[in-house]
């Protein structure tokens, strides 16, 4: 096997060990599962209720019917599960590591530090939201009176990957700031508030905001594009744009992380 293949397998094994530790931890706190289930349903209702209000006396808004807008809400819930279950727990711990100085232990390990900190903790119970979002997608298809197409599902799967990479990269950029400023709470709140706007189709926003949420902070890539893919109306250039954005943001995040680590180890002095 080639050196790269061996490395890939090694990191896959490492991921397995880290996931195992998280699952063991989650099983210790099975109460979380019992609480998270109903909470996830409540959260879904909260996420859908603004749609019910908006569509009470109109059938279509900014080109989206109620049934279609449900897909954006479903994707918003699905990505919330991805963020809260796989990205957020590990990366908030990095801020603690930097503050307490325990990042030293991570840096002394013979493996990529970004990989180690990013896979340190998962919260499996947050995957409840995945089931809830699947329920919302079903509701959307039933409302529209049709099912998904194979191409639409394939495009949606690709966009789930690009959205996850984008969200992860945005988080790494935020966490990289933790090396320079002690308090990054404000940045994480800003991140959460911005992400909240992704619950709406991007065309709901007026011109300048729509531009910002598509071209600068790629919220449209996160929820609007995948919803359009599931509805079978995604434009090819949007899929390509999402992939380019994901690649660009991950490269930017990697560069920021490396720069922050160099600052931590005072490579510059």
């Amino acid at each position: 096997m080639s050196g790269m293949g061996r490395q890939f397998l090694r990191y896959l094994r490492l991921l397995g060990v880290q996931v195992r530790a998280s699952v063991l931890l989650a099983l210790q706190y099975r109460g979380d599962f019992l609480v998270d289930g109903p909470l996830s349903l409540l959260w879904a209702l909260t996420a859908v209720s603004p749609l019910l209000v908006v569509y009470r006396d109109r059938a279509v808004l900014a080109g989206w019917s109620f049934g279609e807008a449900l897909f954006v809400t479903g994707w918003f819930l699905l990505l919330t599960a991805v963020v809260e279950g796989t990205i957020n727990p590990s990366l908030t711990a990095v801020v603690d590591h930097v503050r307490k100085g325990t990042l030293d232990f991570v840096l002394m390990k013979p493996a990529d530090a970004q990989f180690l900190v990013s896979t340190a903790k998962f919260e499996p119970w947050k995957m409840n939201h995945v089931l809830t979002s699947a329920g919302i997608f079903t509701w959307g298809f039933v409302t529209l009176g049709r099912g998904p197409t194979a191409l639409g599902l394939l495009q949606a799967a690709l966009l789930l990957l690009t959205a996850t990479v984008l969200l992860y990269s945005l988080w790494i950029l935020t966490v990289s700031a933790a090396f320079y400023v002690v308090k990054v709470d404000n940045l994480t709140y800003l991140f959460s508030s911005l992400f909240d706007a992704a619950r709406w189709p991007s065309s709901f926003f007026p011109g300048p905001l729509r531009f910002v949420f598509t071209a600068i902070i790629p919220l449209a890539v996160l929820t609007t594009f995948p919803a359009e893919a599931m509805l079978g109306r995604l434009e090819g250039r949007h899929l390509l744009g999402a992939m380019v954005a994901a690649a660009a943001f991950s490269a930017l995040a990697r560069a920021a992380w490396r720069r922050s680590l160099a600052q931590y180890t005072s490579a510059s002095s």
Binding site: G16, V17, Q18, R20, A21, L24, K109, P110, A111, L116
Partner: peptide, 11 residues
């Protein structure tokens, strides 16, 4: 669990 993690990290 930490021992197992270190086993994997240090190969």
């Amino acid at each position: 669990e930490t021992f197992e993690l270190n086993r994997a990290v240090y190969d």
